[in-house]
């Protein structure tokens, strides 16, 4: 059984229909990549899963449980974390406060925290600094760290490499590989090289519809399909 099933999901934002009959099966474990051009509907898909937009009609089920109509906070408490495109960092809070807010009890699991600071050593350096003072890459590390400070079954990550320096993108890929050993990641990405290095399964969204789905290996081997759906050579 899939970890996350999306069936005939349609999402409207105001009077505009953004998603049309999206159906997707995200298996448990590894990284599932959602590719697509700007404005294709990738972010709307993640926000609809999180309950930040309400899909109607259609359904989203997580471990067999219907998420449709559930409050975002209840969806999060089922074990789904969300890292938005703008990272959603609380700039007025320190790095420590950003992380402690995401814990279930207000206390850190020391083993887990040690693992996170090993993945992102910069966070320990800036532990008591307010988050607005961090660089873009450090903010992204904090956003991802916040998503894994508690055990999660699924992490939705929206374009984590946007605007990051290549060296940080490499470090982020390493971190995602390690996180994906114990958690499923649904990754929205436009950086195909980054996505390709991580993804096991994938889908492409085009104009609010699933235009292709399959394994990353197959998609990476089909240059003509990549050009048609992502216009990579353009």
């Amino acid at each position: 059984m899939s970890l996350l099933s999306i069936t005939a999901m349609q999402t409207r934002i105001g009077q505009y229909a953004v998603l049309h009959n999206i159906s997707l099966e995200v298996p448990e474990g590894g990284v599932f990549v959602l590719l697509g051009r700007n404005g294709a509907g990738k972010t709307t898909t993640l926000r609809s899963i999180m309950g930040l937009w309400t899909p109607s009609p259609g359904s989203v089920t997580f471990r067999g449980r219907d998420l449709t109509g559930m409050h975002t906070a209840e969806i999060a408490r089922l074990g789904i974390a969300y890292v938005p495109e703008n990272m959603g960092i609380f700039g007025g809070l320190t790095v420590e406060e950003n992380l402690v807010l995401a814990t279930a009890t207000g206390r850190f699991d020391k083993v887990r925290l040690a693992r996170i600071t090993a993945l992102f050593p910069a966070l320990e350096t800036f532990w008591t600094k307010q988050a607005w003072a961090l660089s873009g890459g450090q903010k992204q590390m904090l956003a991802v760290a916040r998503a894994i400070i508690e055990p999660r079954a699924l992490i939705l990550i929206d374009e984590p490499t946007k605007g990051l320096a290549p060296s940080i993108v490499g470090a982020m890929a390493e971190a995602f590989r390690e996180i994906a050993q114990g958690t499923t990641i649904l990754l929205v990405e436009q950086n195909f090289q980054f996505a390709r290095s991580l993804g096991r399964d994938m889908a492409v969204i085009e104009d609010g519809r699933i235009a292709h789905s399959g394994t990353m290996a197959e998609f990476a081997a089909d240059k003509a399909l990549q050009d048609r759906l992502l216009a990579l050579s353009a």
Binding site: H71, T72, A73, A81, Y82, G88, L101, A104
Partner: peptide
Amino acid sequence: EMVEALGFR
């Protein structure tokens, strides 16, 4: 929105 996405009503 982000506070809600962390699980708080």
